[in-house]
């Protein structure tokens, strides 16, 4: 007999998928404006009984850095950050990310905030998980207009890091560094392979049978709702309230 599948929200599915992708590592760092990766990192820590270390950059509590803004980057350069998250205004089929602009650089049609740490962290963090909830031909393109950071590098370039996966609101892609190409790893419940093909601007590999993304189990849901959500409220009060019903304390 199987128990009835518990109900869950899309954010909970994405967080539990990302927690699986994090795997068994020593240190996960999460940048600004990343509530779902932050949920995933804290969930991974709960399930690992305190492993990995989690550094949430905006947090006072979940952030052990004491050497200023550079310490995150120095720590990554030393090989002491195993997992990081990047997004992009555009992401292409070779894993290149664009956080800068569309059109001419000095007079663009569209301008994004800027590259943040991507021009460095993509090269030195072994497992970079790309995360973009909007899965459309506007965001997932065949070729980015501007490469903030490339998905792969020539063999002589110092490169210990790069993308391992791309998680969207429709599916999970894995990245094959040698082929410079994504493969469809799973499709979220309620979505289909055809829909992913229709809304993806780049070509990707896929098996004849693509599995559904595993739903979060009851334990993961309990940990996210009871333990992780109150911790998130420190830096993502709106998210913690709208997804998990944590009351905002003024």
């Amino acid at each position: 007999m199987t128990a009835a599948q518990p109900e869950f929200r899309p954010e909970e599915l994405l967080s539990s998928v990302i927690a699986e992708l994090i795997g068994d590592v020593r240190h996960v760092a999460v940048g600004n404006a990343s509530p779902i990766p932050a949920t995933a990192a804290l969930l991974a820590r709960e399930r690992g009984k305190g492993r990995p270390y989690v550094s949430l950059l905006q947090s006072r509590k979940h952030n052990f850095f004491t050497d200023g803004g550079r310490e995150l980057f120095d720590c990554a350069g030393q090989g002491r950050i195993d997992v990081f998250f990047l997004s992009g205004g555009e992401i292409d089929g070779e894993g290149n990310v664009n956080l800068v602009s569309i059109g001419e650089h000095d007079h663009p049609k569209v301008r994004f905030p800027g590259s943040f740490g991507s021009g460095y962290l993509y090269y030195v963090v072994p497992k970079v998980i790309l995360f973009r909830t909007e899965h459309s031909r506007r965001t997932l393109v065949s070729k980015v207009s501007f490469i903030s950071a490339p998905g792969t590098s020539e063999p002589n370039v110092y490169r210990h890091g790069g993308p391992i996966a791309l998680v969207t609101n429709r599916c999970v892609f894995s990245f094959d560094k040698a082929k410079k190409r994504f493969a469809l790893a799973s499709v979220h419940p309620g979505h289909s392979v055809e829909e992913v093909v229709e809304h993806t601007g780049f070509e990707f590999d896929r098996a004849a049978q693509v599995p559904f993304t595993s739903a979060p189990d009851a334990d993961a849901l309990r940990l996210m709702r009871e333990t992780v959500a109150p911790e998130l409220a420190e830096i993502y009060p709106q998210f913690a309230q709208s997804v998990f019903g944590v009351k905002i304390v003024a």
């Binding site: 200023g68 803004g69 550079r70 980057f73 350069g77 800068v100 602009s101 650089h105 000095d106 007079h107 663009p108 049609k109 569209v110 301008r111 800027g114 590259s115 943040f116 740490g117 991507s118 021009g119 460095y120 903030s148």
Partner: peptide, 21 residues
């Protein structure tokens, strides 16, 4: 910032965080 960039009126040196540090 966005308006100045798309109208081409701001001279910007785009960087990446650790390069500035």
């Amino acid at each position: 910032f966005t308006a100045a960039m798309t109208s081409g009126t701001l001279t910007l040196k785009d960087s990446t965080c650790p390069a500035l540090h």
